[in-house]
Design a binder for these strands. Structure first.
Length: 154
DNA sequence: GCCAACGTTGGC
DNA sequence: GCCAACGTTGGC
């Protein structure tokens, strides 16, 4: 069992949107490191922190889980799709994704500010200076520490 | 293989 | 909307 954090802009796809849909293919990732985490690292049932980026209060908005093994991202082959990649060979797709299933929405966002201020998290890919990875690993310890902040507002 | 130009991410 | 950080592209 491994843990991950996946970023989404709530204006594009929020935790509420995932709650409505139940499960969603995490398409459009066009970064090799993020792709490798999905394709090579993720297993069905892994825990996912659903993170809202590029918004008023960036932070963890809910919990999800990996719902499928990795498979080729169909959007790379669709010419009208903004994520179309004409250089990706059909017989050796460049971009892969997993399905992500809704687990629950948090009562309150666990803000990026809160995570930055928590020294217990140690070296964390999310808060590393300049990090823009949209899919990143979270250790079991970090997962527990992050979710401990849920109680802050209760 | 170097590196400048360019596009994107994402916090602020 | 701004801009720093960073990945990618392409000329040489």
């Amino acid at each position: 069992m491994h843990y991950w954090l996946m970023k989404s802009e709530p204006g594009t796809f929020s935790i509420d949107a995932l709650a409505r849909k139940g499960s969603e293919p995490w398409d459009g990732v066009r970064n090799y490191q993020a792709r490798n985490f999905m394709r090579d690292g993720m297993r069905v049932g892994d825990g996912v922190l659903f993170y809202h980026s590029n918004c008023a209060v960036p932070g963890v908005a809910g919990l999800a889980e990996v719902a499928s093994a990795a498979y080729p991202d169909p959007s790379q082959f669709q010419p009208r799709n903004p994520h179309y990649d004409p250089d990706s060979p059909r017989d050796a797709p460049r971009w892969w994704l997993v399905d992500v299933r809704f687990v629950r929405k948090l009562d309150q966002i666990i803000a990026l500010d809160t995570l930055k201020a928590d020294a217990r998290l140690g070296d964390f890919a999310l808060t590393r200076r300049g990090n823009r990875l949209s899919v990143l690993p979270v250790s079991a310890a970090q997962w527990r520490i992050i979710l401990s902040h849920e109680k802050d507002s209760a």
